[in-house]
Simulated scan of single mutants.
Amino acid sequence: MIGFLPDKRSTSWPDIAATGRFCVNILAEGQEWLCRKFSASDRDRFSNVVYRLSENGLPILDGSGAWIECAIYAVHEAGDHLFVLGMVKAMTAEPTASPLVFLRGKFGQVTCAEA
Rank of each mutant, 00 (worst) to 15 (best):
V49R: 02
V24N: 06
V24K: 08
C35S: 15
G63E: 12
S54W: 08
G65T: 06
D42V: 05
C23G: 08
L34H: 09
C23E: 11
Q31M: 14
E69Q: 14
E29S: 14
A66T: 07
D44A: 09
N48T: 01
E29K: 08
A71L: 15
D62G: 07
R36F: 05
L58T: 10
G65Y: 04
S54G: 08
K37Y: 01
L61P: 04
Q31P: 07
V50C: 06
E69A: 14
F46N: 01
D42N: 12
V49D: 03
E29T: 05
W67E: 07
A71V: 15
C70T: 15
E29N: 10
F38Y: 02
E32K: 07
S54L: 03
I68G: 05
D42A: 07
S39K: 07
I26F: 12
C23R: 08
L34W: 05
S64Q: 10
R43E: 02
A28I: 10
V50A: 14
G30L: 05
A40L: 03
I26L: 15
A71K: 15
G65W: 04
N56I: 04
I60P: 02
L34Y: 07
D62P: 11
E69S: 10
F38H: 09
D42T: 06
L27N: 09
L58D: 07
Q31T: 11
V50Q: 13
L58K: 08
S41W: 04
G57M: 07
L53E: 13
G30P: 07
W33R: 09
Y51N: 01
L61K: 09
P59F: 02
L61V: 14
E55M: 04
V24G: 08
G63L: 14
S41G: 13
S41C: 05
I26E: 03
I60H: 10
R52V: 00
L27A: 06
I60Y: 12
G63I: 09
S39Y: 07
W33K: 13
I72V: 15
A66H: 10
N25L: 13
E55N: 14
F46S: 02
L58G: 08
V49G: 04
S41Y: 04
R45H: 03
F38E: 09
R43K: 10
F38W: 05
R45Q: 01
C35G: 02
A71C: 15
I60V: 14
S54A: 12
V24A: 15
E55R: 12
L34I: 13
V24L: 15
D42L: 06
V49W: 00
E29W: 02
W67P: 05
F38A: 06
G65N: 09
L27K: 10
C23H: 03
R36Y: 01
N56G: 08
